[in-house]
Computed example of a mutant assay.
Amino acid sequence: NFSFGDYFKKEIIPWSWEFLTKELELPADKLWITIHTEDDEAHDLWREVGVPEEHIVRLADNWWEIGSGPCGPDSEIHIDLGPERGCGKPTCGPGCDCDRYLELWNLVFTQFNQMPDGTYPPLKSKNIDTGAGLERLASVIQGKPSNFETDLMFPIIEYACKVAGVEYGKDADTDVSLKVIADHARSMTFMIGDGILPSNEGRGYVLRRILRRAVRHGRLIGINEKFLAGAVDVVISMFG
């Protein structure tokens, strides 16, 4: 969501912390925060809500801009999924390329205006652009290793397994095909529900390619009959 000149850091930081630790009941001791190297204001606000110093990491990459225009530092909230998901390196931490620290939420503090001459004067109205990953949160809350095992996706995989006569988690290539079918079945259901139909251009061509790829991966796991209509029925039963 966005705030244009309404609330800013001193509001969104405690609100996001409260939502994750109180409403979703995520363990506070597993949460890690990244901030921009020079963002002392965000650092102090995270400390005020109770984040220990050792769980706040300063990163130069925590900066959002797309060229001239509004820009600013950002602060990411990560959860530690445990050393068994990590790379084992002593430098492992939020920002590492391994799977141990999962980013859940990003708070972008749009407070500067990048000018063509490369200067960054402050904006008169400071803004918030914040986004959290629904499926990532679901995977953490439900204790699943990935988005595909959550109740937002797995019923579609179970349907495809039944039709193909295969078992999820037994073969890496089969799992890839099952995930593609689940993802594409959900996507095509929402696209068609929004009035998009297969065609040879624009959004219709995207839908056409999604349909073809889902069918191809069905063939790869031994499904030779029509099956996507049944997958769509599963999606509709899940999301109404």
Rank of each mutant, 00 (worst) to 15 (best):
D194Y: 01
E53A: 14
G118C: 13
S16P: 00
L178Y: 09
V206P: 05
E48R: 14
D61F: 03
V215Q: 13
F2A: 13
G95R: 09
W32L: 09
G95Y: 06
H78V: 06
I141H: 02
P198M: 08
F154L: 10
L207W: 02
A231R: 04
F190W: 11
L26P: 00
N106D: 06
A229D: 14
L107H: 05
L104K: 11
G131C: 06
A172Q: 06
V140R: 03
A214P: 07
I141W: 04
T189H: 13
E25C: 10
M153F: 15
W63F: 15
D6E: 12
Y101S: 13
R209H: 12
L197V: 08
D97S: 15
D61K: 14
V140W: 04
R100N: 01
S177T: 04
D39C: 08
P70N: 08
K30R: 13
R100M: 09
R136Q: 03
E76P: 00
H217P: 07
L178T: 10
L26E: 01
E41C: 00
A42D: 12
D173Y: 12
L31W: 06
D29K: 11
V57A: 05
D117V: 04
E201M: 11
R213Q: 02
K30E: 08
D97I: 07
Y205P: 05
T34E: 00
R219C: 06
D29Q: 13
R136H: 02
R186L: 07
I192T: 12
K179T: 07
A42N: 08
F109M: 13
G230S: 05
D29G: 00
I141M: 03
V57Y: 15
Y120Q: 12
T119Y: 03
E149P: 04
V206C: 03
K144G: 01
D233M: 08
K144T: 10
D80K: 05
G195L: 05
L104P: 05
D183M: 12
L220N: 13
Y120T: 15
